[in-house]
Write a protein that binds this DNA or RNA. Structure first.
Lengths: 165, 165
DNA sequence: TGCCTGACTTGCGTTTGTAGTAGTTAGAGC
DNA sequence: GCTCTAACTACTACAAACGCAAGTCAGGCA
């Protein structure tokens, strides 16, 4: 149930996990609210009040998190203007932010499998334009890789019937 | 920069992400200390004081987290006894816990890419017995999947020279 | 019997995340 | 100039995570 450690790492007592990328990443986006905003961004949400409603957060939390995420460079604040409306800002994922997709969906995948009472949870990931399930996991670079544009979110039947997805 | 939403989900304003697996998963293991303990478990650590030293946590935190993780069923408390020592307990990952591997390593992968100052971070994931890099990402089930036993952690050259990995 | 060590547990203080409510600002429409 | 709304900011309160220190407990050993 554990990964092999090679070469110089084999003697686990002899080294420390300094500069651990996992720890560093958790410090940056290791909160529920960050993850949910990231989720929404991956689902295509860009506007402030949509983030608020869809993550069921409060103005204060969403404001703080969006600022934090833009500071770090996970999303970008862009002006836009609908006609007859004043200029607003929208938040769009940068490539850096979009690269968190595997992490976010890996959490979803695990939750679907282990935390949903009945079936596999409300949403599932499929290959775009098909019904072929997509899994998040390790593979070699030579294997076919799917990008964000190759993915599609589908609703699980019984959830959509219950009307709340 | 966002995933396609299909069918009934297309109108993003018309549905709420209820019972979100991402949120549920974050509530269960969404802390730095949980992730680090999970990391250590994936690296093969099983004993209490090793968790403490290797995650640089405190007794209190590690104790609380290990209890929480065993309660949830991510790891199992098993008695063992070295000769001449008294009976102790070790904590080993269950399949449920090991299934978080993609999430944990996806965080590592992102941190390696974006948070490490110089190179790609101290540790990298390769295919076991080779030097072929492994990436965590979406793929279809028909693609070759790698399990925990197919993976190996290797040290990045310059980090090991600096002696602290 | 008393000491020692590994494996915890408890208590306390600080920080961070979360939640609710209220107040502010920019600019289009009237 | 006034109103209205999206997009914030500020304030308060509570809970959880974290860090430190001290205390407990079991059992092997001198």
């Amino acid at each position: 149930m554990s990964v092999k450690l090679n070469g110089a790492l084999e003697d686990r007592g002899a080294w420390r996990a300094e500069n651990c990328s996992i720890a560093m990443t958790m410090e940056v986006i290791g909160t529920r609210s960050s993850m949910l905003i990231l989720r929404e961004a991956l689902y295509g949400t860009t506007r402030f009040d949509d983030f608020v409603r869809r993550t069921k957060g409060t103005d204060a939390i969403v404001s703080a998190r969006l600022k934090q995420l833009t500071d770090i460079g996970l999303c970008e604040k862009r002006p836009y203007q609908e006609e007859g409306k004043r200029r607003r800002y929208e938040y769009v994922l940068t490539p850096k932010g979009a690269d968190l997709m595997p992490a976010v969906f890996a959490l979803m995948q695990w939750g679907n499998r282990y935390l949903q009472s009945d079936d596999g949870g409300p949403l599932r990931l499929v290959k775009r334009g098909t019904d072929i399930p997509v899994v998040i996991g390790p593979h070699t670079e030579s294997d076919a890789q799917l990008g964000i544009d190759d993915l599609e979110i589908a609703a699980n039947g019984n959830w959509i019937e219950q009307g709340h997805v």
